[in-house]
Design a protein around this nucleic acid. Structure first.
Length: 608
RNA sequence: GCCCCCGUAGUUCAAUGGAUCAGAACUGCGGACUUCUAAGCCGCAAAUGUUGGUUCGAUUCCAACCGGGGGCACCA
């Protein structure tokens, strides 16, 4: 394999492997945070209730802090559970160490639940302890340590512009990547750029109209103009039955075969064009400050894909139908894995990518963050993967779909032309908008607010829902970003931090807080339990592939804090400390909000 | 035609099959405030598309229907 394509792929393979090694080492070097360092897990462990479900409940409403149920027992019938098992459970809890040592003030049965009232001192102590000890790593857990996940997101198309859908994939994918890392995975974000399919057309177009290149400042715009031009020909061909497009297509297909064969001229031209597009996309990635671990486009997998198809045909797991290689993935459903002219198709490359990620990167889980319109495709791809034995047994393959950006006028998906409304200008508009509105803030803070508002807007609700954009009305779009919740959470964090900053001295250690100061007000009980929930929210977000779970949690936490802030002053006007415990809680709030927001790709500004 | 997703206050969204409250935000109406940042706080009003089924218990699961969106093989 001495051709240019082969050389290039070898170099890329090495880079991918290096990136993975680095990521795995980073994870193991700083160790994993054990689940048992957290409040609910500690209670469960000390009561020997591993299979039980524990959840925080409202003390003002239920007179208790934690409710316990045992789902396994519940299934067998509630009467049996309530009359037999629950009293036994209660007796066990009442004899346990936490009760003897006064961590649990009261344990009682209430209907289906075993309710536990914690002592204020214990609640304060444990919640604060884990936060102040773990600091920026508070929220992480070790549930998935030494597992590898590959996340596939962003995947723009070469020679086209990024559109709104790419933002969603990039943002949701990147945040999921952060979340997976927080639950212990070695996470690996891969940008599977479409840099292969349809390239024959582009190369033929370039051969014909490439001399117009100089008229374009942005080379990707030039490529896009080529795309538009041959698409136009194709459309006309559909209308007038062939025409000049027939010849164009023949030549284009020949060029694509040259490229797949690794012919130097073809590969060189292709590389040049891909670089033009990447340069353009990079502006977006830089602006939003999201950088995937590796860019390995479809081209990287094209060759191996061809071999996989051959092997499948030989093994008779794939057959030829109308000249194309297909896998029967269901009744009367054929999944095309190679075109009838024997060139590769996206499925060919996707199969090879699955194999690479499983065999070479050791991925135990693969997550595809791609729009909901491709649900059928991924179901078939995964079925075919299974039938051909492409990945190791037990590998989890998931398509994580998300809803479209829709026009708030028509409620319909933005057309690709509307979608092509420049993503970059959207971010720039946000920066201008916030600058005008809050002129006293620094450039750095404005950028944090603008980027944070955009990313949070994408994850504040469950990903399947459509995100409405008031197309053509920048002001309205900005308002929706402003109301997205990011500002609210950032604001809560900023004002909490300003209290800590104003105090100016190191925040007291929890050991320095006197027991009598740990007598908690209801708002503090609520807030501390909320703080203790961060790791739970992160785990749930990872299990459901739903960043909105974390976003919701952060908004609720900010709400609880804002409410607390109003009625519980920490410092006197001259800056002297009124109440040490409140300062400790405030400091913990700062840490929790910053940690949660960081996973959501939101940085807290210095000032708001 | 087949397949997928979504139907919850006027609007945009929450709610691992559970509690006495189906929670928020926006809008509307009404408040408080010379202590730490008002992008804030407090209060009032307002909702599970329809009909069945499973269950001790359904917004959640199942079926049908109604309404909205998306997809349907050699594009990605």
């Amino acid at each position: 394999m001495a051709d240019k394509l082969g050389e290039r792929n070898n170099a890329l393979a090495q880079k991918i492997e290096e990136a993975r090694e680095k990521s795995a080492m980073r994870r193991t070097a700083h160790g994993y945070v054990e689940r048992e360092q957290y409040l609910l897990a500690m209670i469960a462990a000390s009561l020997d209730l591993e299979s039980a479900k524990l959840e925080f409940i409202d003390r003002t409403q239920f007179g208790a802090d934690v409710a316990i149920t045992v789902p396994a027992l519940l299934k067998k019938g509630s009467k049996e559970y309530i009359n037999e098992h629950l009293p036994k459970l209660l007796a066990r809890v009442q004899k346990s160490v936490p009760v003897k040592e006064g961590w649990i003030v009261k344990a009682e049965q209430k209907g289906l639940y075993l309710n536990i009232l914690l002592s204020d001192e214990y609640l304060f102590d444990v919640a604060i302890k884990s936060i102040s000890e773990l600091k920026e790593r508070y929220g992480e857990t070790d549930g998935r340590k030494e597992k590898t996940v590959v996340l596939d997101y962003s995947h723009p198309n070469v020679a086209k512009h990024l559109h709104a859908g790419h933002i969603r994939s990039t943002i949701i994918g990147h945040i999921l990547r952060n979340i997976y890392e927080a639950v212990g995975y070695t996470a690996f974000g891969m940008n599977h750029i479409n840099d292969w399919g349809g390239f024959g057309f582009l190369m033929e177009a370039y051969a014909r109209w490439g001399n117009e290149e100089s008229g374009y400042e942005n080379k990707n715009d030039f490529l896009y103009s080529l795309y538009v031009r041959y698409r136009q020909m194709e459309k006309e061909a559909e209308q007038y039955d062939g025409g000049p497009f027939v010849e164009f297509k023949e030549k284009a297909d020949a060029r694509f075969r040259d490229l797949e064969a690794g012919k130097p001229e073809a590969v060189e031209l292709w590389q040049k064009m891909v670089a033009w597009s990447l340069e353009d996309f990079q502006r977006f990635y830089d602006l939003i400050d999201i950088h995937l671990d590796v860019i390995a486009g479809e081209s990287f997998y094209a060759r191996r894909g061809g071999e996989i198809v051959e092997e499948a045909l030989k093994a008779k797991t794939a057959t030829i139908e109308d000249g194309a290689a297909v896998v029967h993935v269901g009744d009367e459903v054929d999944f095309v894995i190679r075109r009838s002219d024997e060139s590769s198709i996206y499925a060919t490359r996707d199969l090879a990518a699955l194999e690479y990620r499983s065999q070479k990167l050791g991925a135990e889980r693969m997550v595809y963050v791609v729009g909901q319109e491709q649900t059928d495709y991924f179901a078939r791809l995964f079925k075919a993967t299974d039938m051909l034995g492409i990945v190791k047994t037990g590998t989890v393959l998931e398509h994580v779909p998300f809803g479209f950006y829709v026009s708030s006028h028509t409620k319909k998906k933005l057309s690709s032309r509307e979608g092509a409304q420049n993503v970059i200008s959207l971010i720039e508009s946000a920066i201008t908008y916030f600058h005008t509105k809050y002129p006293e803030l620094s450039d750095a803070d404005i950028k944090k607010i603008a980027v944070g508002s955009i990313t949070f807007n994408d994850i504040k609700k469950s990903r399947m829902g459509a995100v409405e954009l008031d197309t053509g009305n920048v002001q309205k779009i900005m308002q929706s970003f402003e109301e997205s919740g990011a500002g609210y959470v950032m604001y809560a964090a900023t004002r909490a931090r300003s209290i800590v900053r104003k105090y100016g001295k190191p925040v007291p250690e929890r050991g320095e807080v006197r027991t009598k100061d740990m007598k908690l007000a209801p708002a503090e009980v609520l807030l501390l339990k909320r703080l203790a929930e961060l790791p739970i929210a992160i785990v749930r977000a990872s299990e459901t592939n739903e960043p909105s779970v974390l976003a919701e949690y952060l908004v609720r936490t900010a709400q609880d804090y804002n409410s607390y802030y109003e009625s519980f002053p920490v410092l006197a006007k001259d800056g002297t400390l009124l109440h040490p415990a409140r300062l400790v809680i405030t400091n913990a709030v700062v840490q929790v909000l910053i940690n949660g927001l960081r996973l959501c790709h939101v940085e807290v500004p210095e000032k708001m």
